[in-house]
Amino acid sequence: HMTFVALYDYVASGETDLSFKKGERLQIVNNTEGDWWLAHSLTTGRTGYISSNYVAPSD
């Protein structure tokens, strides 16, 4: 899985979204569905959809 880092804080707007904080590391589970990616937070252990605009590759 690809690992990304959050560029900004994000508060989930629905049950399927994932809230995260700036600097949080996220593993991308599925990024084939446009701008919203299914991600797993390595910080909180939660999984949900994130906006690809809010993250950048961590490598």
Score class of each variant (00 low, 15 high):
residue 52 S to F: 07
residue 8 Y to E: 09
residue 7 L to S: 02
residue 4 F to A: 04
residue 16 T to C: 15
residue 55 V to S: 02
residue 21 K to H: 08
residue 33 E to Q: 13
residue 10 Y to G: 02
residue 10 Y to R: 05
residue 13 S to K: 14
residue 47 T to K: 07
residue 19 S to L: 06
residue 55 V to L: 09
residue 22 K to Y: 04
residue 13 S to E: 12
residue 40 H to C: 14
residue 14 G to D: 09
residue 5 V to H: 04
residue 46 R to V: 05
residue 11 V to D: 11
residue 43 T to A: 10
residue 46 R to Q: 11
residue 37 W to Q: 03
residue 39 A to F: 05
residue 34 G to A: 11
residue 13 S to R: 14
residue 19 S to M: 05
residue 54 Y to W: 09
residue 52 S to H: 07
residue 54 Y to H: 10
residue 45 G to F: 05
residue 57 P to N: 07
residue 44 T to A: 03
residue 7 L to V: 06
residue 5 V to D: 03
residue 27 Q to D: 06
residue 10 Y to P: 00
residue 28 I to V: 11
residue 17 D to W: 14
residue 30 N to F: 10
residue 21 K to P: 00
residue 3 T to R: 05
residue 5 V to G: 00
residue 55 V to Q: 03
residue 51 S to I: 09
residue 30 N to P: 06
residue 28 I to P: 11
residue 31 N to E: 08
residue 58 S to A: 14
residue 21 K to M: 10
residue 10 Y to T: 03
residue 43 T to M: 07
residue 10 Y to E: 04
residue 43 T to W: 07
residue 2 M to H: 10
residue 20 F to V: 07
residue 1 H to K: 12
residue 53 N to R: 14
residue 41 S to C: 04
residue 10 Y to D: 00
residue 25 R to P: 07
residue 53 N to G: 11
residue 34 G to W: 06
residue 44 T to V: 02
residue 33 E to V: 11
residue 22 K to F: 04
residue 39 A to N: 01
residue 55 V to D: 02
residue 24 E to H: 03
residue 16 T to F: 15
residue 58 S to R: 06
residue 47 T to D: 05
residue 57 P to T: 08
residue 34 G to H: 08
residue 24 E to Y: 03
residue 45 G to C: 07
residue 56 A to Q: 11
residue 39 A to P: 00
residue 50 I to L: 07
residue 3 T to Q: 09
residue 10 Y to V: 07
residue 9 D to W: 08
residue 18 L to W: 03
residue 51 S to Q: 15
residue 20 F to M: 04
residue 49 Y to M: 09
residue 56 A to D: 05
residue 7 L to G: 02
residue 31 N to A: 13
residue 39 A to G: 04
residue 29 V to W: 13
residue 7 L to R: 06
residue 27 Q to I: 15
residue 33 E to A: 12
residue 49 Y to C: 09
residue 51 S to E: 06
residue 35 D to M: 10
residue 30 N to Y: 10
residue 10 Y to S: 05
residue 20 F to P: 00
residue 9 D to K: 01
residue 45 G to N: 07
residue 32 T to M: 12
residue 52 S to K: 15
residue 21 K to F: 08
residue 13 S to H: 11
residue 48 G to H: 03
residue 43 T to Y: 06
residue 51 S to R: 15
residue 21 K to W: 05
residue 51 S to N: 15
residue 10 Y to H: 09
residue 27 Q to E: 11
residue 46 R to E: 07
residue 47 T to V: 11
residue 31 N to P: 10
residue 17 D to T: 08
residue 14 G to R: 15
residue 44 T to G: 01
residue 9 D to A: 04
residue 8 Y to Q: 09
residue 39 A to T: 03
residue 20 F to W: 02
residue 53 N to P: 06
residue 23 G to C: 06
residue 13 S to Q: 14
residue 11 V to G: 04
residue 57 P to Y: 10
residue 32 T to D: 10
residue 27 Q to P: 00
residue 19 S to F: 04
residue 16 T to P: 05
residue 3 T to H: 10
residue 35 D to W: 07
residue 13 S to T: 14
residue 37 W to F: 06
residue 5 V to Y: 08
residue 47 T to L: 08
residue 17 D to P: 02
residue 3 T to L: 14
residue 35 D to P: 09
residue 43 T to P: 01
residue 32 T to K: 12
residue 58 S to K: 07
residue 19 S to Y: 04
residue 53 N to E: 13
residue 22 K to P: 01
residue 6 A to L: 03
residue 30 N to S: 13
residue 18 L to D: 01
residue 37 W to V: 07
residue 40 H to I: 15
residue 38 L to W: 09
residue 40 H to F: 14
residue 57 P to C: 09
residue 29 V to M: 12
residue 36 W to Y: 12
residue 20 F to A: 01
residue 36 W to I: 13
residue 42 L to D: 04
residue 45 G to Q: 05
residue 52 S to G: 07
residue 7 L to M: 08
residue 35 D to I: 10
residue 20 F to K: 00
residue 44 T to C: 03
residue 14 G to M: 11
residue 27 Q to A: 09
residue 27 Q to W: 14
residue 18 L to N: 01
residue 21 K to R: 11
residue 7 L to Y: 03
residue 15 E to C: 12
residue 46 R to A: 08
residue 41 S to I: 02
residue 23 G to S: 02
residue 43 T to C: 11
residue 4 F to R: 02
residue 45 G to P: 00
residue 49 Y to N: 03
residue 24 E to I: 05
residue 2 M to P: 11
residue 38 L to I: 06
residue 38 L to M: 07
residue 33 E to I: 11
residue 55 V to K: 02
residue 54 Y to L: 13
residue 44 T to Q: 04
residue 44 T to R: 01
residue 58 S to C: 15
residue 51 S to A: 09
residue 2 M to Q: 13
residue 45 G to K: 05
residue 41 S to V: 01
residue 35 D to S: 11
residue 30 N to L: 09
residue 45 G to E: 03
residue 6 A to M: 04
residue 30 N to V: 10
residue 42 L to A: 05
residue 31 N to I: 13
residue 4 F to I: 04
residue 11 V to C: 11
residue 42 L to G: 02
residue 31 N to Y: 14
residue 19 S to K: 03
residue 20 F to I: 05
residue 2 M to L: 12
residue 1 H to N: 13
residue 12 A to V: 04
residue 30 N to C: 13
residue 21 K to Y: 07
residue 7 L to F: 04
residue 58 S to M: 15
residue 59 D to I: 13
residue 54 Y to A: 15
residue 59 D to V: 13
residue 14 G to Q: 13
residue 24 E to S: 01
residue 9 D to N: 06
residue 23 G to R: 01
residue 7 L to Q: 05
residue 10 Y to M: 05
residue 17 D to Q: 15
residue 21 K to L: 09
residue 13 S to G: 08
residue 13 S to V: 14
residue 49 Y to W: 14
residue 41 S to A: 02
residue 51 S to L: 15
residue 40 H to S: 08
residue 12 A to Y: 03
residue 37 W to M: 06
residue 11 V to N: 10
residue 26 L to S: 00
residue 26 L to A: 00
residue 18 L to R: 01
residue 23 G to A: 03
residue 40 H to V: 15
residue 20 F to T: 01
residue 17 D to V: 08
residue 43 T to D: 15
residue 47 T to I: 11
residue 14 G to T: 13
residue 28 I to K: 07
residue 40 H to E: 08
residue 25 R to D: 04
residue 28 I to S: 04
residue 38 L to E: 04
residue 42 L to E: 06
residue 16 T to H: 14
residue 12 A to H: 04
residue 35 D to N: 11
residue 9 D to T: 07
residue 35 D to H: 11
residue 21 K to T: 09
residue 32 T to L: 11
residue 57 P to Q: 09
residue 42 L to I: 09
residue 28 I to A: 10
residue 1 H to A: 12
residue 57 P to V: 10
residue 37 W to L: 07
residue 44 T to I: 06
residue 30 N to K: 09
residue 41 S to L: 03
residue 14 G to I: 12
residue 57 P to L: 12
residue 3 T to G: 05
residue 22 K to C: 07
residue 26 L to I: 09
residue 55 V to I: 09
residue 40 H to R: 15
residue 40 H to T: 15
residue 50 I to P: 00
residue 26 L to C: 04
residue 27 Q to Y: 14
residue 49 Y to P: 00
